[in-house]
Every structure is written in structure tokens, then in C-alpha cells.
């Protein structure tokens, strides 16, 4: 597409807003060099164009993509918006430029530089959704299930169908700390709420008992003759550990020389308080929040 390329778009950060930026780029025959959210705005020498969000135009872009490029292309654009891809709006625009030039075959051109980023972003997003559908840990607070996660991608809309199927009659909440959003579901209804922070009451005795049982089960099922921490790390990347009851506080195995020294009695390690292994900022901030919520002694 021919057109000027010295412009940066500003939009409101919604999916519809992004679709309107795509509309504008086609309509104005422009090649924006950046598409920014309002809050990302910074001083620049390039021309800025503010794109207003119009749901009607957004819907036209969406149906246009579906009709001319197929459902998969539509899905990729949607996925890109929720992914952690850098300059995802621009990547979506590049993909659609190629798409409208080439037709529905564009989704099989996964090696093309204008397609590959979207393909990879979509895979990464769905991969994280799949992992999290297993790695999420709920705590029972008076019958309501609460979980805190820290994903790279904005996974909540994709997790909702799974957990609503799994718990059709439960009240549950998943709080995404990276994006500060919460998925709240009760009685078959669910919604996404922007939330700055969640304050949880301390877990009760039953909850602590189940956590202890789970941790014990987890430690028991290992076959020590097959110990293979590297394999575990491949399957459960470390960034998920802080939010998983059984792996939180799990330490890196000590070097062989140190272990031998301990076995020979030449070295003793200072006893550490198990609670102090929880050092991730979130856990600390949750603890602070809990303390603040408790009445002063």
C-alpha cells in the first residue's frame, strides 16, 4: 500500500480502537510508523493522529476480515491484541495489509515476515492459556475460589470458558496482577473488572490443611531415583512458580560440592524461616495488605 509513513496513531487502548486504527490506515492510505495508546504518548518529531473509537467502523473491519480472509485471520488479529507482542497493533496492521492484497491464503504463509509475528504471538498466547489452565491455584475463602496470576499475555478472556465449564456453580475470581484485571464469575455469569489490587483475608484452617496435603502429595510422587530438576523446569517455567503452592519457595538444588560438605558434617546451613522463602514482591505486598486489613493489636 502506497502512502505516507511519517505519522503515529494514538488510540484508546481497546480492541475496537485498534480496529479503528486499521480502518484509518487503509482509508487515509497511510503507513503509520507507530500505533500508541494515549498513555504511551511521548514527545516526538512525527505527526500525531488521534483516532477516535467508533464501534460501527470496528465491526466493519472485523466482518471484512472474516469474510475476505477467513475466521483464522480474524482470530489472529484478536489474539494479537491480547498478546504480549511488541507493537502488536502495527503487526496486526502489517498482517492485514498483506492479507487484503493476497486473499485468504495469507494464513498459510506463516513464514512471511508480515505474518510470522502474528502467528508466533497467537501460539504464545494460547500456549500460556493452556499452561495456566493447569497451573492456576485457587484458595477457598468462605466458599469463593480466589487465584492470583502473573501472566505475560492478557489471558483472562481465554481462561473464562474453561473455568466456567469446570466450575459452573462456583463463585470464583482470577486476578491478573500484570495487567491489573480480575475475572469474576458467579452463578454462570462472568465479567472482567479493572482492579488496582486485591486484599485477601488470611487462609483458614481447612485451606491450610489442603495446601499441606497437596504439598505432601507433590513431594511424595517424585521418584527420587529419577530426579531431574531441569526437565521439570522445561515443563513448568520458573516464572509460574511464585503462584503455585507446591513450588513456591522451592529452592535451586545446592551444588554437589556443598551437598557433600553438608553430608560430611563440614558445613551447616543457617536455618531459614520457611515463610521468608516467599520473597516475591507480590507475596510480600499481599502479606502487607493482609496485615493492614487486620485490626491493630
Amino acid at each position: 500500500m502506497a502512502g505516507t509513513g511519517d505519522v503515529i496513531y494514538l488510540y484508546d487502548g481497546t480492541l475496537e480502537g485498534m480496529l479503528c486504527c486499521i480502518w484509518t490506515a487503509f482509508e487515509q492510505k497511510e503507513n503509520p510508523i507507530g500505533i500508541w495508546c494515549f498513555d504511551e504518548e511521548q514527545p516526538t518529531l512525527y505527526r500525531l493522529r488521534q483516532v477516535d473509537t467508533d464501534p460501527v467502523l470496528a465491526a466493519r473491519v472485523q466482518t471484512g476480515v472474516r469474510r475476505r480472509l477467513g475466521a483464522l485471520a480474524e482470530q489472529w488479529v484478536y489474539d494479537a491484541f491480547y498478546s504480549a507482542l511488541e507493537q502488536r497493533e502495527l503487526a496486526a496492521l502489517e498482517f492485514l495489509k498483506l492479507g487484503f492484497a493476497k486473499g485468504p491464503g495469507v494464513t498459510s504463509m506463516v513464514g512471511h515476515p508480515q505474518v510470522a509475528p502474528l502467528f508466533a504471538a497467537s501460539r504464545a498466547l494460547h500456549n500460556e492459556v493452556h499452561l495456566l489452565s493447569g497451573f492456576i491455584r485457587f484458595s477457598d475463602h468462605d466458599g469463593a475460589l480466589v487465584s492470583v496470576i502473573r501472566p505475560k499475555n492478557f489471558v483472562l478472556p481465554f481462561l473464562e470458558p474453561h473455568f466456567s465449564r469446570r466450575f459452573p456453580y462456583e463463585k470464583y475470581m482470577i486476578y491478573d496482577e500484570t495487567h491489573r484485571y480480575a475475572l469474576v464469575a458467579a452463578g454462570g455469569q462472568s465479567r472482567l473488572v479493572e482492579t488496582e489490587a486485591v486484599q485477601l483475608p488470611p487462609p483458614d484452617a481447612v485451606e491450610l490443611q489442603y495446601r499441606a496435603l497437596w504439598k505432601q502429595f507433590y513431594n511424595t510422587v517424585e521418584i527420587t531415583a529419577r530426579h531431574n530438576p531441569k526437565c521439570r523446569m522445561t515443563h513448568v517455567p520458573k516464572r509460574y512458580w511464585a503462584c503455585m503452592d507446591e513450588l513456591r519457595g522451592e529452592k535451586k538444588p545446592l551444588p554437589v560440592s556443598v551437598r557433600q560438605a553438608i553430608a560430611a558434617g563440614e558445613l551447616t546451613l543457617p536455618d531459614t524461616d520457611p515463610a521468608s522463602t516467599i520473597t516475591t514482591p507480590t507475596q510480600a505486598s499481599l502479606e502487607n495488605a493482609r496485615r493492614a486489613a487486620l485490626p491493630a493489636e
Partner: peptide, 21 residues
């Protein structure tokens, strides 16, 4: 009641020997 099953299966964690739980 509760519960669902997913065709592809879901791993919930991996033990220190790298086996799926």
C-alpha cells in the same frame, strides 16, 4: 456438581523428576 474434561488433557504440575502430575 462440578467438573469438566478436556480432550487434550491438562497437566497441573510437574514433580521434581520431571513427570507430569
Amino acid at each position: 456438581g462440578m467438573g469438566s474434561a478436556v480432550a487434550c488433557g491438562i497437566c497441573h504440575t510437574f514433580s521434581a523428576d520431571g513427570r507430569c502430575v
